Simulated scan of single mutants.
Amino acid sequence: MSTTGRTRALRRRMIVEARRSTIAHGLHGFTIEQLCETVGVSRRTFFNHFASKEDVVLGIELHADVEAIESYAAGGVVADDLDPLDSIVAMAIDQFHRAGIDRADEVLVRGVFEREPALVARFLSATDVQLARITDAVRLRFGWDDPDDRRARLVTEAAAGMLKVTAETYFDDAFDEVTGPTFGDLLTTNLRLMRAAISTGQDTTP
């Protein structure tokens, strides 16, 4: 496993264990030191990846996706001939696979929010920050330099809406991940449906 892969696996272990501990004991029912001991890392290593106990529970990593977003802004990560909305969807699929997110993560997150509802606001705030970063990246990638140009934000918010609908479907208890589409395929289908709905009101794709 590469160094990047090992780092990603370590972060996931810390996140999963923090979520399990929160569900079992509450956010204030365990310490960072106890979490580090369980995972087998030092306190210094913990703070190399997360700013606080709340952040590790929510999976908010220090400098998360910075390299990918900067590369996207410079024209990398996804094919350079994609339009703005297609490019964001492609990047989202790429990051979804890189993060290794699965349905078990959603179950843990749901349990965390049920145990600690106050964390929902922190999660939403972090989401807003991430959307702002992606909006800036879209603006740079497509040369929309005018600060009054709303296109980057409109595209980013549209993509965020599609991601929300896709996640609601994919992580629903009734969804069969064995026979159902992958997250990427489902998101791509939703993109096609949205384009068809906007242009004609019908899905004419074979």
Rank of each mutant, 00 (worst) to 15 (best):
V112H: 05
D185M: 06
D94M: 13
H49V: 08
E177T: 14
A79D: 14
I60L: 07
T156L: 04
H28W: 15
I32N: 12
S199R: 12
F123G: 03
K53T: 04
R103W: 04
T188E: 08
V77Q: 14
A197D: 07
L191A: 15
D176T: 11
A99G: 07
F96Q: 06
D83Y: 12
S199L: 10
G201H: 00
E177P: 01
V66A: 11
E70N: 09
R12C: 01
K53H: 01
F30Y: 03
V77C: 15
W144T: 02
L27P: 02
I32K: 01
R98V: 10
A68G: 06
T45V: 04
M194R: 10
F142A: 00
F47D: 02
F123H: 14
F113C: 11
F183R: 07
P206V: 11
L108P: 01
G26T: 12
V178Q: 08
T166H: 05
L154V: 15
L119T: 13
A152C: 07
L82Q: 12
L10C: 09
E54M: 02
V112T: 14
I60N: 09
D145Y: 05
T179S: 10
L193R: 13
T204G: 00
F123E: 09
E157T: 10
D102Y: 11
G111M: 01
L193S: 05
N190D: 10
A197Q: 11
D145L: 10
V41C: 15
L187Y: 12
D185E: 15
R151K: 05
I32P: 07
L27E: 04
H63W: 00
R153Y: 06
F142V: 08
